[in-house]
Computed example of a mutant assay.
Amino acid sequence: MNSTTVRSTTTAGLALGTLLLTAGCVANSPAAGPGDDTGAGTVTVSSTAEGCELSATEAPSGSLVFSVTNDGEEATEFYLLAEDGERIVGEVENIGPGLTRDLVVTAAPGRYVTACKPGMTGEGIRADFTVTDSGADVAPTGALGDQLDAAVHNYAEYVEDESSELLAGTEEFVAAYTAGDDAAARELYAPTRAHWERMEPVAESFGDLDPRMDLREADLAEGQEWTGWHLLEKDLWPPKDEKYTPLTGAERTKYADLLLADTQELHDRTHAADFEDTIDAASIGNGAKELLDEVATGKITGEEEIWSHTDLVDFQANVDGARVAYESLRDVVVAKDDELADELDERFDALQDELDAHRDGKDGFVSYTDLTDDQVRTLSVAVDALSEPLSRLTATVVL
């Protein structure tokens, strides 16, 4: 997981940061102004090092666009969180200085929390946000509604399957790791984590699990205990360029059991009777883009799996998850913008071709350290080429 995540917690540290919740967030108007001819409400957001200025503190229910401009000097993120301040409703990450990105959500009436994260670290600059009842149906109806209902159902089943596979793989991994069978644990590490990477936006949306399960050492807050996959990764692939004290047998058992317990909790949440109700077309579309952002900010740089160097396995899993999310919505995209569908199909295929060039066997990949600078640049270009049309997915489907 990279620093972009409140991530995954979710994205990673929103629930754990120490910044004041109310610092620096100012509303300039009492309600969101009208959007474009789509009928969506639009709230502009200006993010700086000290502030998170919204043009409104409330908006009517329905389609809602947060147009986020980074007026600061370092990359930022913006989140719409549920009232508890943990569950992620929607997010946009890695917004560079001077850039603007839109977050499109379908918002039901209720209380929410907004958060800017300058520097993409910490809990963020937060404020309360209210969605009033517009009296209109929040969800689409008719034939479009039926298509989107089917998309949500199919995607929810995909997430449930991935969480089941993740649990089964983690049980096997933990058994090998705690028994001291490091060779077997190393073999299981990457293919098991692939199930997490495919469904990462959903895992992050729960708010509290991601920082426990997927936080990188580089993203630890001061005084924060490190747990999860990457702690065990470092123990299995100890660094040679620093003094490292291996975990004791008792510590191995402690942290492996914590990982397994958190994985069981993730499985239980994604199999709850109301899980499907937490997903909508906007969250699927936004999740697809988030997965590609994960590639751009972590996997393509080799910073995610800094000791095992299995980043290309994660890369493939993120692309898999993004493509499944897109394809669950593809019928709607074709009906609304068939040229966008053609472009997305072509660029997903092109990125996959570049990834396939680095396979090692049927299901594996070469170590990330084996890639040349030119090969990394070629992959990065393919990611960027897909990122732009994928950023239009949610708006095309929802607005």
Rank of each mutant, 00 (worst) to 15 (best):
G62M: 01
G62F: 02
G62L: 02
G62E: 02
G62C: 01
S63K: 15
S63E: 14
L64Q: 06
L64T: 04
L64G: 01
L64P: 04
V65L: 12
V65R: 15
V65H: 09
F66Y: 14
S67H: 11
V68H: 13
V68A: 15
T69W: 13
T69R: 15
N70Q: 04
G72N: 09
E73N: 08
E73I: 10
E74F: 03
A75G: 00
A75I: 04
A75N: 02
A75Q: 00
T76M: 12
E77A: 15
E77F: 06
F78I: 09
Y79W: 11
Y79M: 15
Y79V: 13
L80E: 05
E86T: 14
E86A: 14
E86I: 07
R87N: 15
I88D: 13
V89Y: 10
V89F: 10
V89C: 09
V89L: 14
G90I: 04
E91I: 07
E91F: 00
V92C: 02
V92N: 05
E93D: 10
E93Q: 10
N94W: 11
N94P: 00
G96T: 00
P97K: 06
P97T: 08
G98Q: 04
G98S: 03
G98K: 03
G98F: 04
T100P: 13
T100C: 11
R101M: 00
D102L: 02
L103Y: 07
L103A: 07
L103D: 07
V104H: 14
V105W: 09
V105H: 06
T106I: 06
T106D: 08
